[in-house]
């Protein structure tokens, strides 16, 4: 079990010292590695456009990056979806149990046209919905705006994403969840623990003031602290701090 981030520093050092003495010098470096790496700052990851995604084709990847950039843009206060590496999160989701709908009931008969109140009814998995949804949207952009999504200028991209989010791009019924899935996954990638590939540097948590995995706030129920902002930055499940 990992030590709590607020646990006394002294206790941590004692424990490391003890283990180090027992296991020898190389083990100290191994055990303390997490802390040492933080002091130096983690190595910068590969830029998004130089990555080889696990699920998306190169063309889909370029498009996904562009979509994320419109859904949570870089300008203004707070990081954008690209700086926080949201596309990496989504790519990983596609090859995990979520992308494969492994936990969902997928038996037929399917009635994807049913009232939305009855919930998800597509025969397709989220990964299949992304693949077909991106292709459909690319075609729709071509038909409506005369070029593929990534070839549109910024204003037209904004309008096209607006139409997509309003479910106004003639999606067939089995793809009707694509806009909702995309938007939810973008927000998940932005605001979930960085262990899942997004929220790089916990920048989105720092921006809104969410302290991440700290999970111990009893002393903050004291009425004297009601109007005091929480002073500490976030920590992640893997022990990074920002």
């Amino acid at each position: 079990m990992r030590p709590h981030p607020d646990s006394p520093k002294l206790g941590l050092l004692d424990r490391r010292g003890f283990l180090g003495a027992a296991l020898g010098g190389t083990a100290i470096a191994g055990i303390a590695g997490g802390a040492a790496a933080q002091q130096e700052g983690p190595p910068e990851p590969l830029p998004l456009d130089q990555l080889t995604p696990e699920f998306f084709t190169p063309a889909e990847w370029v498009m996904l990056i562009a979509l994320c950039d419109v859904l949570i843009p870089a300008d203004g206060d707070g990081p954008g979806a690209l700086e926080t590496r949201v596309p990496v999160f989504i790519d990983r989701q596609m090859v995990g149990h979520y992308g494969r709908a492994e936990r969902w009931y997928m038996e037929g008969p399917h009635d994807p046209d049913a009232s939305p109140l009855k919930g998800f009814q597509s025969p397709l998995t989220p990964a299949e919905i992304y693949r077909a949804g991106l292709a459909h949207f690319q075609d729709w952009c071509g038909r409506t705006h005369g070029a593929g999504f990534t070839d549109l200028d910024a204003d037209t991209r904004l309008a096209a994403v607006g139409a997509l989010m309003d479910n106004d791009v003639d999606l067939p019924a089995e793809l009707r969840d694509f806009p909702d899935f995309l938007l939810l996954n973008v927000k998940q990638g932005y605001l979930s623990d960085p262990r899942h590939g997004g929220n790089h540097g916990m920048a989105a948590w720092s921006y809104i003031g969410f302290p991440g995995a700290r999970a111990n706030f009893l002393s903050w129920t004291h009425p004297d602290r009601d109007n005091v902002p929480y002073p500490l930055g976030p920590v992640s499940i893997n022990g990074e701090r920002a």
């Binding site: 843009p73 206060d77 921006y207 809104i208």
Partner: peptide, 16 residues
């Protein structure tokens, strides 16, 4: 708004 610059600004302004 549910997405875009307006959403990003709002979560910074209104979280908590």
């Amino acid at each position: 708004p549910n997405w875009g610059a307006g959403w990003k600004k709002a979560i910074g302004d209104w979280y908590g």
